[in-house]
Amino acid sequence: MSGVNELRIVGFLCNWCSYGGADAAGVGRLAQPTDLRIIRMPCSGRINPLFVARTLLSGADGVLVSGCHPRDCHYAEGNFYARRRLEVFKRLLPTLGIDPGRFEYTWVSASEGQRWQTVVTTFTEQIHRLGPMPRFSPGEACVAVLAESGG
């Protein structure tokens, strides 16, 4: 079966820039890996970092967030909030036991179809290098922690 090597990558894209950029990539027939599934958001500022955490803990292997370039937000300042929140969140990921390479945020405008193709291709390769996200059942996680602490 083709595509069996697909990993689960979820994208949160702002409606005005990056979603349009992904459309532009499609209109330009710019080939991309098929792993990514895009969820449309009104603005990158709408993204609660906990969405990203929930997505990764629910079975995704990677999460990509993309919005308008800073200073070019459709709502004037939403992506500034996004940038601050997501940067802090990225640094928090190791604490959650998640490789920070599984999450990236970037800026792609509605005219940047080629840039979107590069972003998707690079991020998909990055996730494939990391492989599927390790999954533990809660019990296993406890055993793992106990084993590590020598108990």
Binding site: N48, Y81, R85
Partner: peptide
């Protein structure tokens, strides 16, 4: 204007953007 900045900011989840509610986005996830 429906940007949803407030929704992502509210510590209580008390302010929700219609058709982009937390529940809807998590349902999509």
């Amino acid at each position: 204007q429906g940007c949803g900045l407030c929704t992502a900011t509210c510590p209580q989840g008390a302010i929700q953007l219609a058709h982009f509610t937390d529940n809807q986005i998590l349902a999509e996830v």
